[in-house]
Design a protein around this nucleic acid. Structure first.
Lengths: 200, 200
DNA sequence: ACCAGCTATGTCAGTCACTGTCATCAGGCT
DNA sequence: AGCCTGATGACAGTGACTGACATAGCTGGT
């Protein structure tokens, strides 16, 4: 049993596997301990048992290591829109897509990871800058997905923008929720609030 | 007549005056000629007759030199909201505030400057990143201004987001407009489109 | 007129993010 | 065994940005 499940299942890599994951873990730990600015890339690489050069082969820059998940977020979002039945109102498509992100947030470790990550990002303007970009790209992807699903462009971009706004709010609530309610439930509640707000 | 009007009117500064403006002008020219990435800060400073260190005393970083106007934008926006009569619907306040930005875009040189600047920003992801941040902060400021003007928070943030979206669209149209219509006129037209879109 | 302080600038050394290039090493394939 | 490939290491270099200190010209008071 000295061989891990991953080693048995996955494609065997040479050297120590999962260099990318080790780098991300090391970065999160160090950023959390000393703050983003006071950590050098060389230190992250050293903690992961690698060199600085290798860090930059896995991540485009020092910030990107905290935003790795955004591609999976985008992918889940567009798949959910594509899988939805045709002819539904745009806001409903968006609601379903955002709720579908809950699948990525199920495990408790995920929430703990997200919490640490968010605490770091909230303390640094450069990281907030990058987060804005990621959310903007997420909105663009959502707009495209809606458009591919026969939603006319103006309605699509508006619905997508609203959807991203709801996501931001809901994500923070989910991180802070003392009752640990599941993410899709909070999404549903947020969209109901929104409906009540616009239909007095 | 060898003494310029500025020299006669303004407060005489030591050395050559307006170092900040010269840096901005040099940066715009060089970024335009060779692209943002292929220009060094030292080169910008040299063209302005200054040193690299002085550049960083005037601008926080290499990008910021292109985003100097955003503080005046923000100021104009909040003043316009504060000056509006109370009790009007939020979207109307926002429309008036965005239209008020036209005062900053009157002179033809302004349009030419904005055009050059936008061409540069559109070619570089780092600059686009910064632009997103500036627009986001503009939205925050607009939200605050609306809130101070007795608009409840949810309506304020929604109206502000919509306002920023309209601003982005209108600004591009204004830059490209072959008829050179004034900015506030285009803003009005955009808000009418929006109204028609939401009231079929 | 002199001195003191203030402010914008210059100078210099240093850190660190990021890149290009070449060497190396382990495993798979023939 | 020999070759190829993909991930890594080693190393040098560029350029953004910072901290510390020096200097020059103005400004105010005496």
């Amino acid at each position: 049993m000295s061989v891990t499940a991953i080693t048995m299942i996955g494609v065997m890599s040479r050297w120590e596997p999962n260099a990318r994951g080790r780098l991300a873990q090391a970065a999160l730990a160090l950023y959390g301990e000393r703050g983003y600015e006071k950590v050098t890339v060389a230190e992250i690489a050293a903690r992961a048992g690698l060199t600085e050069r290798t860090f930059f082969r896995h991540y485009a820059d020092k910030r990107e290591v905290l935003f790795d998940g955004s591609t999976r977020l985008q992918q889940t979002l567009t798949e959910a829109v594509a899988a939805a039945p045709a002819g539904r109102p745009p806001i409903e498509l968006v609601g379903a897509a955002i709720a579908a992100l809950g699948a990525l947030f199920e495990a408790d470790e995920r929430r703990e990871f997200a919490r640490q990550r968010q605490a770091i990002v909230d303390k640094n303007p450069d990281l907030q800058e990058r987060e804005l970009v990621k959310l903007s790209r997420l909105g663009d992807a959502l707009t495209d997905a809606l458009h591919d699903h026969d939603v006319p462009v103006p309605a699509a971009s508006l619905a997508a923008q609203v959807g991203i706004a709801v996501f931001r709010v809901t994500f923070v609530r989910w991180l802070d929720d003392p009752a640990s309610r599941p993410f899709p439930e909070l999404v549903r509640a947020a969209f109901e609030e929104l409906a009540a707000m616009t239909h007095p």
